[in-house]
Design a binder for these strands. Sequence first.
DNA 1: ACCTGAACACCGTTCAAGT
DNA 2: ACCTGAACACCGTTCAAGT
Lengths: 191, 191
Amino acid sequence: MVRQPSINAQNRAPLSIERIIEAALQIVDGQGLSRLTMRRLGDALEVEAMAIYHHLPRGKEQLLDGLVAHVAAAPAAPTGAAGGSDWRGALRSWARDYRTRLLAHAGVLPLVVTRRNPTALTETVVSLREVLRRGAVPEDAAAAVAHTLLGYVIGHCALEVRGTGEDGADRVVDWDARFDAGLSLVLTGAA
Amino acid sequence: MVRQPSINAQNRAPLSIERIIEAALQIVDGQGLSRLTMRRLGDALEVEAMAIYHHLPRGKEQLLDGLVAHVAAAPAAPTGAAGGSDWRGALRSWARDYRTRLLAHAGVLPLVVTRRNPTALTETVVSLREVLRRGAVPEDAAAAVAHTLLGYVIGHCALEVRGTGEDGADRVVDWDARFDAGLSLVLTGAA
DNA sequence: ACCTGAACACCGTTCAAGT
DNA sequence: ACCTGAACACCGTTCAAGT
């Protein structure tokens, strides 16, 4: 009789940093950041919590840094080809994409804002600068634009997630429209 | 012999929400958010941790909401008198003041960003709108400007606190200048 | 190399009790 | 009314031990 693939510990897919981060992200997205616990994460991975430390020696700190890297660091595609004159358009769609990604993992936003983890955003700033460089925007103007844009996107997402209480009773805020309006302000001012 | 004011529990200044929030803010500013603990807060107030619950029945949640209210809600003065034509100037100095206050309590920034506590920012948005109303800016343009500005200020402060890693080796970022530059972008676009 | 079990110090919070 | 003491369930993390 052929051995059924057994259900026990021996032949599970072995733990890996990717699998850990993924499971953590799922907990945060589904139940909120405060429910992300080493023990619960262990459960989700069908492993004792302590096993995680073998892959993330710096423990929960490293886990949280990993989450930030996962959602905030990816360049969100510099919209490749179009490279050139319409840098405003490129930045606009970059901003929309980036916002979408931040909102998809709203639970980690506080970490993005908080963690002293420069590398995560460095990539992002670099890819923004790249777009501006190809648009022949002068160096120091580019610095200001990149920072303003990134600050705006992150800040606006924060406002969206927490709500400003404007929607008292009847009024409903159309966040998509509002984001685009603000984006226009920022990009129009840029030159 | 006259009784010295005794050192024991009986005649300490009684606990109050203000005293509690103040002590908490001091801990956060001095040691970081993660060190803010009900037990440590109790120590700082020379009281058992459990006494705090008598004044903040909702416990730590309520404490954190209180911190957000304290640093993010105050209107930061709508610069009173000048009321009128130079609303751009008014917004500019409002933004500078607000940034200063956020940075003075950088430890609570993650809470400002995170906490589902609309009331805290509602006041702020209202005072911004007031400035714009006096400047005769049309209603829906005002909505966009207020949001964009607030989002930018919060987002930029977040970037400042965490660092973007741009300052690799030599380059030093002049955050004050950069904030003002972005502010100009936002306000120039506004109309 | 990879994971487990037991243990430690420390959380937030409840509840009955003191004054 | 205001505070304390003891207790409970739950944290992150260490460390020796298993395979």
